[in-house]
Amino acid sequence: MANSGELEIPPKLKAVRPYLLLARDHDKRDPVVAFFCRHYAMETALALDKQDKSPDNKIFLSGLMDRLEKSKEDLRSDEILSNELASQAHVETCASKIFVYADNEDRAGRFHKAMLKSFYKSGLLFDVMQTFGELSEDLQKTRKYAKWKVTYITGCQKRGETPH
């Protein structure tokens, strides 16, 4: 399924769009993370579809499921993907790396697009980590902080203020 098809998301399922964009971001660089972003998007879309079924949803869900199964097949030999704990650790490492970069830039007072995007992406990846079960208290706090930072810095930029 072409990537573009993947992003023709029915209106009622549009909440999964950020995770599919993040998956596309990682398709080449980190297929394991891309797989779990799509997996979380699928879980979320299935839950949304339960509330409000529509033929459009079904076409989209089947297409995403096909893509997930193909990804799993393509990554058959990947040791990380075949081990749940290794997968969880891998996604957490990726999320934490992106968060630490953003946090360091923030603490150094360097406010720029890449830093904002990194807070945003790390927040999404901490969401994706819920596919492995409930987040630890620490990760829940980090996830909340990353999302709050995106809102706070975006607000400052809109008001023409310097975030502190």
């Binding site: 699928m42 299935l46 339960k50 079924k53 079904k58 997930l68 199964e69 749940e84």
Partner: peptide, 27 residues
């Protein structure tokens, strides 16, 4: 009855997708 049939078909499809997703993780 048609609506009912439609609804049960839709939920069967949902279940099928959920099962496929679960299998993906267990493979």
């Amino acid at each position: 009855t048609t609506a009912l049939a439609g609804a049960s078909a839709a939920s069967m499809e949902q279940d099928e997708l959920s099962q496929r997703l679960q299998q993906l993780r267990n493979q």
